[in-house]
Amino acid sequence: MTGWNQFVGVTSFDEGTLARHYCAVKKTARMGAFQLAHASCPQHAQFEKSPNTAPKCLSANEKTVHVVAHFRAAPPASMSGRFHPLFLARDYEKCVVARGKCRLEAPPEEYKPLFTVVDFPSFGFRTMFGSWVVNRVMHPVSTPEFDTLLMFHAPGMGVVNLAEQFALDPALTREIAHELGVDHPAVRGQDIIMSTDLVVTFKRQGGGLQRHAYAVKQAKDLTPRVVEKLAIEQSYWTKRRTPWSLILDTNLPRQLIANMDLIMEFAEEGRLPCGARPARDVTAWIVPHLGTGAPLRTVCSRCDAALGLARGTALSVAYHLAVQGTLPLDLSGAFLPNATLKPIHAVA
């Protein structure tokens, strides 16, 4: 899993201390401390998605959809506080297990999350995200969750599976809540199914797989009650012998996410504005010119002129190569079109 831990630091929670670079959360007598994942990267300008972003293409018949549909409209006042009836803890066996939801052992493209973005009203962004890693539409229900997914789609992360909105067994979460002396999450007096925002499976360098659970939150939302819920979640995964970390929106690598949002549309070769042969010609032309010190947009513009291609074709191919990891660009550095290319090596 080379490369993934350069963005999110992870240590074993059982060690009892927080590793260097981790954010600290105030301890309580009942819960102790729980660990926060820290994404180390240079400070760059905040990348903001347009609130009016509309989906370019979203077809239920496509195996993968490399576009994003954002929903921003706030729900009507009459819908505030509503919850999906299938999310009650008493219905876990019937509505999660029996329906085959949240099965980490299932093929990545067949995974079913506990809920989707259309199951309940929400303020802010809700996103349908076509993943080229798991070959299905994913359902991050907040902007930080969407940004985290983009981060884990970056080349070199070693990710083989992503499972969002993973349901936690209420029998165990109730037991943990009792042990910690905190109230189990409930709505109108009825316990609900807790969930983990994201479970990521990484491929180890020496072979084998490693699973890691993540909660994704906004720093401003860490109220005492949210801390109690996170403590239950952390203990759940500790009992399951699975590492768990908290990712805060303030610690995400913003420039990496901005570049991934830019190039994600070209993850599949079929979405390029040219055929396979011109794409190979562009690749063969770009690679020898990477060491000129010119920005990517300039190199690609010269390539279009040299090969007689439509303007922007070479840049699209470069984006495709970058997202596939074939062109080893520094996606966490400068904004990609303006980046000065000084790769360690290049593969034609």
Rank of each mutant, 00 (worst) to 15 (best):
K220Q: 06
L336E: 04
V8Y: 01
P243T: 11
V68K: 07
E62H: 14
H184C: 09
R254A: 15
I192N: 06
P42K: 12
V133T: 07
T53M: 11
V117I: 12
V317D: 06
N52A: 15
P155L: 12
V159N: 02
A294H: 13
D169S: 00
P140F: 05
F83Q: 07
P224K: 00
H38I: 09
F83S: 09
V25M: 09
A163L: 08
A267E: 00
T250G: 08
G206W: 06
T53I: 07
C274F: 06
S316Y: 04
P51G: 10
L18H: 06
C300L: 02
T298Q: 13
T201I: 03
G181V: 02
A231V: 07
D281T: 09
K63I: 13
E228R: 07
S131G: 09
E105F: 10
V133M: 06
L252E: 12
L88K: 05
W4N: 01
V160R: 06
V160M: 06
S50D: 13
E48L: 15
Q255H: 08
A45M: 10
A258C: 10
K217A: 00
P288E: 10
K63R: 13
M151R: 01
P288W: 07
V10P: 00
L162A: 11
M260T: 00
K56Q: 08
S78G: 10
R311N: 11
H66W: 05
Q43C: 12
T17Q: 06
V323N: 05
G32W: 01
L18F: 04
E105I: 10
T283K: 13
L230Q: 01
G189T: 02
A74G: 11
S245E: 10
A19R: 02
Y214S: 02
L309I: 03
T64I: 11
G291M: 08
S40E: 06
V159D: 05
T326H: 12
E109P: 07
R297K: 11
T173F: 01
P107C: 05
E48H: 14
A334N: 12
R20W: 04
K203D: 10
Q210T: 11
G124E: 00
S50N: 13
P55G: 03
